[in-house]
Every structure is written in C-alpha cells, then in structure tokens.
Amino acid sequence: MKLSILDQAPVVAGQSPGDALRSSALLAQAGERFGYSRFWLAEHHGLGGLACSTPEVMLGMIGAVTSRIRLGAGAILLPYYKPYKVAETFRLLAALFPGRIDLGVARSPGGPAEISMALSDNYLERALRMPDDFAALVRYLNDEKPGTQAPEQEDSIQAKRGSAQALDASSTGPAPWVLGTSVKSARLAAAFGTGYAYGYFMNRENAAEAIAAYRDAFDRSRGERPCVVLAVSAVCADTQERAEEIARGVKAWRLLAGQGRGEAGIPGPDEAARLLGPDDSASTDESGLEHAMIVGEPSRVRDRLSELRETFGADELMIVSYAHDFADRLRSYELIMQACGD
C-alpha cells in the first residue's frame, strides 16, 4: 500500500518546541529513506504540545535536507489568510523544490478561540467563505493574477469554478488538496477535482459518508480521477507489549491535553503510568469516535491498515505516529513501511 507521513510536530516532555521542530526535519529525512511518498506538516496555533504554527517555514528547511519525498502542508488553515499570499508562498516553495510540493488546506481553527481572534477578527465569516477563497487560491496557483476576472465573476462561485483547473500529478507547481472530516470538505475537493485527505484519526464517524460524497461529486473536467488519502494514527513496535507501552504515553498526553496541560509534552513511561494507573491498557483505544489509534506489532498493524484501506478504498494511507522516545517513533514508521509498503 502507498504510505505517507503526517507530522504534527509533537512536543516531548523535557524538550522544547524547537526540539520538536528539529525532530520533524529528522523524521522527514528518515521517511525519505524508508520510502514514504509524502511528508506533510500540520498547522496549529496555541495548542499545547504541538509546535508548528507555520508549516511553510518548516517546508523550506525540510526541502533543503531532503531530495525526493513530496512535502506539503496538512493543512494551511485558509480562513486566516488571503488566498493570493498563500499561493505566492507555495509557488515559491514549488520553484525551489519542483515537483515535490503539495498544498493542503482546511477550514479548522487549529487552536483555541482567543488565538483565532488574535489571528483573524473575522474567522467565522472567512470560514463560511471557504469555497470562494479556495476558488481564488486555485486560480492563483495556476498563475492567474488578481483582477483578471470580471467583477460579477469575482462574486460568483460558479464562475470561479469555471476557471479553476487543478494541477495534475506531473506539474511542477504546488498541487492543491482539501483536508477535512465532513461531507462539506469532501464536496469542496470534488468540485475542484483535487485530492481529498480525510482525518480518520480525528473523526471516524463521517469517513464513509464523506469519502462517498467526494467520489460521487468529483468533477473529472478539473481532475483526472478522485484520490483519497486516509490519515490514520498508529503506533508500531517490535512486540505488542512494547507498542502498548509507547501508546500509554500518547494516551496520557491526550489526558493532559484534555486538562489544558498538553504543553507538558508526551510523558515517559513512569509519568504515563502515574497518570493512567498501572492497569490501564492502550491496546484497544478504538472505542471512541475521535483519536482512534492502531497499536501493535507489525502484523497486527498491517492487518488493521489493510482493512481500513479496503473499507474506504483509500489510494494512500497517511500515518500519524507518536512516541515519547524519538527512536521509538522512527522505529514505528520503519516497521510500518516494512510490513505494509509497496
């Protein structure tokens, strides 16, 4: 199966956000060695324990220390920005690293309300205008300049769609993607013929409906065919016992985040045991609709990932893997590729 990496730049207990960002670069290099197809960085703001607020800055640095793996934002939170500026930034990255840059966008706030207000006085209004802004973004990615549309067309989403041609896979420009967990985001991707990445690790409930809506509505005049990436959380280790030990640290971190203490970072085994209790098990953390996580030794993880790929017909699986120890995190990605990769 085709595999990629989604990195949220998690902070580890005892380390700084800068350490987390430097680890992201090391992870991208390792992902390239292991054979992963893409490395995407997420954007978060004021969200304790997640260090990357500006993926575009990190991508410039990571592009300079890698040579083949596709790099992208997963995602730029478009309601905070003017589409033309986002297009300029990613066209510049594409010029530096031709044929390697993806631009994923989403409407999520990516942080608490007070941070959203600090970033944009009209976030909610801009979120509602996401289809218009995405239409403009796609035009600018295709090198159309502001003012080239008639005034009446600027206010018409249907007219905007008429000029939006998604870049194909062979293009050297930035390839646009829509990321989300809803039918609304799926239909936006379908309308512009772009790829669609569904955040299964964030919300399992809407996956089947959203992906079906994307495929049903996909506009083949703007894209060759639908392409679905399913983003999944997984922890893999050489043994089931070790995988569960690593995952307990991740589960404890989520507990801290729920208490507003996520900035403390992913705790080590001793602290995780103290927070969760000695009898807690991380092996079956798939009962809730959010934060589903596959935990196990390689064959178990392979079987579960294969099942998800078949269930949703995913073209690609994008793996989110956390660990307190960076060596464990690298090993998780290495084992997953060895067990599942093309």
Score class of each variant (00 low, 15 high):
residue 290 E to H: 15
residue 155 D to C: 07
residue 267 P to Y: 10
residue 101 I to H: 06
residue 299 S to V: 04
residue 249 G to H: 01
residue 69 I to C: 12
residue 84 Y to G: 01
residue 333 Y to A: 11
residue 10 P to C: 09
residue 131 P to K: 10
residue 124 L to D: 14
residue 15 Q to H: 15
residue 123 Y to D: 10
residue 282 A to N: 10
residue 305 L to N: 02
residue 308 L to E: 03
residue 3 L to Y: 10
residue 200 Y to S: 05
residue 53 S to L: 00
residue 95 A to K: 10
residue 275 L to H: 09
residue 312 F to T: 09
residue 52 C to V: 02
residue 161 R to L: 14
residue 221 S to P: 00
residue 57 V to T: 14
residue 204 R to E: 08
residue 74 G to R: 02
residue 80 Y to L: 09
residue 88 E to Q: 12
residue 313 G to D: 13
residue 36 Y to Q: 04
residue 287 S to L: 11
residue 286 E to L: 13
residue 156 S to G: 09
residue 156 S to A: 13
residue 81 Y to D: 05
residue 173 G to P: 04
residue 301 V to F: 06
residue 331 R to C: 13
residue 223 G to I: 11
residue 144 E to A: 11
residue 276 L to W: 10
residue 56 E to K: 00
residue 59 L to C: 05
residue 226 P to K: 05
residue 170 S to T: 15
residue 275 L to W: 09
residue 290 E to R: 15
residue 10 P to W: 04
residue 1 M to W: 09
residue 137 L to V: 12
residue 269 P to A: 11
residue 115 I to S: 13
residue 171 S to G: 12
residue 145 K to W: 04
residue 286 E to G: 13
residue 256 L to G: 01
residue 102 D to N: 15
residue 277 G to A: 10
residue 5 I to S: 06
residue 1 M to F: 08
residue 62 I to Q: 04
residue 99 G to T: 11
residue 252 A to M: 06
residue 117 M to A: 14
residue 53 S to G: 12
residue 104 G to E: 03
residue 258 G to F: 12
residue 182 S to H: 08
residue 223 G to M: 11
residue 332 S to Q: 11
residue 133 D to Q: 15
residue 105 V to Y: 02
residue 14 G to T: 04
residue 21 L to W: 03
residue 47 L to A: 03
residue 193 G to N: 03
residue 156 S to N: 14
residue 249 G to S: 15
